[in-house]
């Protein structure tokens, strides 16, 4: 596999030069308003003049995946499904809800998944689960039936979210690549932590947590569920004994701080790939770096639109890959 990606990695190295670095992020943060940010981004090759923020993000995401598709043969693209599965499960939730309330709502779907949103929409509308990929069939049927019988949207959501976390972790493991395995594990574990914190804050019981938490190897989900059913402080005390002890101070601040910690940890994990001239790792790192910068720019633009103070914005801005 190492030899297969030499050309691809060399091209990624050239493209890394156009990633937004810390100084560009600082420029964006100190820009007076959203329009100024958009102008800076236009100068950096993001979107065209007059493009809205969301259109620009969609175009940038497409640009990243078009570039990766250009470099990686179609039969090997499956290795990157680990990054696209969350969009599939988002679309699944949307399709389930749409099929239950009726009508069509095209704006609720995202386009980055491995399955076209239209296919999910059709399958759910006709309850034709067998037309879906095997991994989605059972969860689609279960979540839709739950929503129809209980009318409990949250129950439907936790069923799909748990399946999504499990699918991402398994997809990461299936690649056999350490970076992608770590990515899957981190997404699953941090997803569980967020669920546990939210459940503790809203006073959910143990049964709810057992349904919602996805198993992963870096966390004991039974212990996390036990801690979450006892309260927020117990979660933090449990996390102190895990690989996620560094996240505890951030969790004490806010969930937003924790989310930033998750993204920063991933960037920290992928950073050595910037010096790796071989293998799939630098490509995966590039995708994650692009996703991270798009997320950061989205946060900055939203903050500028809503007049958030610069200090608050700085707290939310993620570390850059370059």
């Amino acid at each position: 596999m190492t030899d297969n990606f030499i050309y691809a990695v060399a091209r990624v190295r050239s493209h890394e030069l156009s990633l937004l670095n810390e100084s560009v992020m600082a420029q964006l943060i100190s820009a007076p308003g959203e329009e100024d940010c958009l102008r800076i981004l236009n100068e950096k090759g993001w979107g065209a003049q007059g493009t809205s923020g969301e259109d620009m993000f969609a175009a940038e995401t497409k640009k990243t995946w078009d570039f990766i598709r250009e470099l990686v043969p179609e039969d090997q693209m499956k290795i990157f499904d680990v990054f696209r599965l969350s969009d599939d499960y988002h679309n699944l939730k949307a399709a389930i809800k749409e099929s239950c309330i009726g009508g069509t709502h095209p704006g609720i779907f995202v386009s980055g998944g491995t399955i076209p949103a239209g296919k999910l929409e059709e399958a759910l509308a006709s309850s034709d689960y067998e037309s879906l990929p095997e991994d989605l069939q059972a969860v689609a049927q279960q979540a839709k039936e739950l929503l129809l019988t209980t009318r409990d949207g949250q129950l439907c959501d936790i069923t799909v979210d748990r399946a999504a976390l499990e699918a991402i972790r398994k997809a990461g493991e299936a690649t056999g690549e350490k970076l992608l395995r770590d990515y899957g594990e981190l997404v699953c574990a941090t997803g569980d932590i967020k669920i546990a914190i939210r459940a503790a804050r809203t006073g959910k019981d143990r049964a709810f947590l057992d349904k919602a938490l996805a198993p992963c190897s870096s966390l004991d989900t039974a212990a996390l569920a036990e801690a979450a059913s006892a309260g927020n402080d117990q979660i933090l005390a449990y996390l102190e004994r895990t690989d996620y002890a560094d996240a505890v101070p951030e969790l004490k601040k806010s969930l937003a701080s924790f989310e930033r910690w998750c993204d920063d940890r991933m960037i920290e994990r992928i950073r050595p790939e910037i010096h790796n001239p071989f293998g799939i790792g630098p490509l995966a790192a590039y995708i994650l770096a692009r996703e991270s910068e798009i997320k950061t720019v989205r946060i900055i633009l939203a903050a500028k639109r809503n007049g958030l103070p610069e200090a608050m914005l700085r707290e939310r801005v993620r570390e850059t890959y370059v």
Partner: peptide
């Protein structure tokens, strides 16, 4: 050959 692949990748964009 290996270096050539990398060289081709580097010169594609530059």
């Amino acid at each position: 050959g290996m270096a050539g692949q990398a060289a081709a990748g580097a010169t594609t964009d530059n």
